[in-house]
Simulated scan of single mutants.
Amino acid sequence: MAVTPFGSSPVPPGFERRSHSSLAWVVRASVDDPALAHLLCDPETHLAHSPRIFKNEGRCVVALVGGYVMKRWSGYGGLERWKTRWRGTRAARAGWAATALEQAGVATVPVLAWGTREGVIGAPSYLLMAYLADAVDLRSWQGNRLEMAERLGGLIGLLHERGFTHRDLKPSNLLVTPDGCPLLIDLDGLRSVGPVPRSRAIADVVKLGRRMVAPSSLTPSEASRFLSRYCLARGFRDRRNWWTVLREEAGRHDEFRTLRAARKTRA
């Protein structure tokens, strides 16, 4: 029997199963949009006529459809087929991750539905999310960097404190609302691991410090704000000890990159 990520129930609380044409969907029960049924019946046509493509990487397409954001995964084989058989499609895993984050109080974009062609392993899977027209990703955001560093520290600290990690933390996977609130997206990269290991938490925080606030890595004052809020969200008292460990870890990353660049130059 297939195992459902982030829970044992086949449908998260507040969602219900719906069939549209030959597609099986899990839809948020509170969504009451007459146009939604038409979209769910034929997502491929809507994707083909989308007025805006946010991302197109062959196997993964993100586009604006009918006032919503739809993400489609297709063309995966091998290990992904095995995961689909036992853990659900990529869309289902992302949908469960989103509902788990909502229940944990971690800020993210609301997911409205996910589905795939019923009984066909390897068929495209679809994730439907709310469209936040005024939000921008962190690469395009402009504002008070100190405040943003602090808010990011709180967001990632809460993420870790609730037992989640994200394999690909980067500016394009964070949206910022007009009031400056960061939201985590690209949820198929989310993992529920229970207590987050110290090594994984450190790796995530170091990565954030290097990539999170465009156009450059965090300055010392921004890093201090980030780490203070991160430690507060996780209930850590000894921030100084974390500073020491993080600086040592960052130094190892610097040495590794310098060595790798030197080897490429010699080659």
Rank of each mutant, 00 (worst) to 15 (best):
C41F: 05
T258D: 13
T265G: 04
R266H: 14
N56T: 04
E249C: 12
L146C: 11
L47R: 01
Y68K: 06
G75W: 03
P182G: 04
I185F: 02
E147H: 11
L40F: 01
H49L: 13
M212G: 09
R139F: 02
D168S: 13
A98N: 01
P182Y: 03
G67E: 11
K71C: 06
F226V: 09
R90V: 08
L174F: 14
P51D: 06
A100C: 07
L155H: 02
V26G: 00
W114H: 03
P5G: 04
R28S: 05
I185M: 09
A261I: 07
R210E: 10
I202V: 13
R234A: 03
R145P: 01
R252Y: 12
W242Q: 06
R151E: 02
R200F: 11
V205I: 06
E44I: 02
A130S: 11
I156P: 01
R81D: 12
G163Q: 05
L155F: 04
K71E: 10
R239E: 15
S8N: 07
V3G: 12
H49A: 15
L40E: 00
E57L: 12
R72Y: 03
R263W: 15
V206I: 14
R257F: 12
M129Q: 10
R239D: 14
A135H: 06
A35R: 04
R257W: 14
G122K: 00
E147V: 13
V196M: 06
D186K: 04
P182V: 05
P43E: 04
S9H: 10
R257L: 13
R198Y: 07
D32H: 08
P182Q: 06
K55L: 05
S228T: 15
L169P: 02
S8P: 02
R59M: 10
T258C: 15
S74F: 12
R162K: 15
A203T: 09
A91W: 10
K264H: 11
R191I: 11
G251F: 06
Q103H: 13
S221R: 14
N56I: 07
A24P: 00
G143V: 03
P215Y: 07
F164A: 01
A113E: 01
L184T: 07
T265I: 11
F6S: 07
V213A: 02
R239W: 13
D134R: 05
P195E: 10
T89L: 05
L128I: 04
S192F: 11
T45V: 04
M70F: 09
T116C: 06
P110K: 07
H253E: 13
K55R: 12
Q103R: 05
A113Q: 00
R263D: 07
L232W: 15
K264N: 08
V206A: 07
I185A: 10
P182M: 11
S140D: 08
V27N: 00
A91D: 11
T165V: 07
S8G: 14
L132R: 08
R117E: 11
P51W: 02
V69P: 00
H253C: 10
I156E: 01
H160D: 03
S228I: 12
T84P: 02
P51A: 08
L64A: 14
T84Q: 12
A214K: 04
G78D: 10
C181V: 15
L64V: 05
A223L: 06
Q103P: 08
L159E: 00
L184S: 01
I185Y: 06
R260C: 13
D42M: 03
A261R: 14
S21W: 01
K55H: 05
N173M: 10
T45W: 01
A35T: 11
G119W: 03
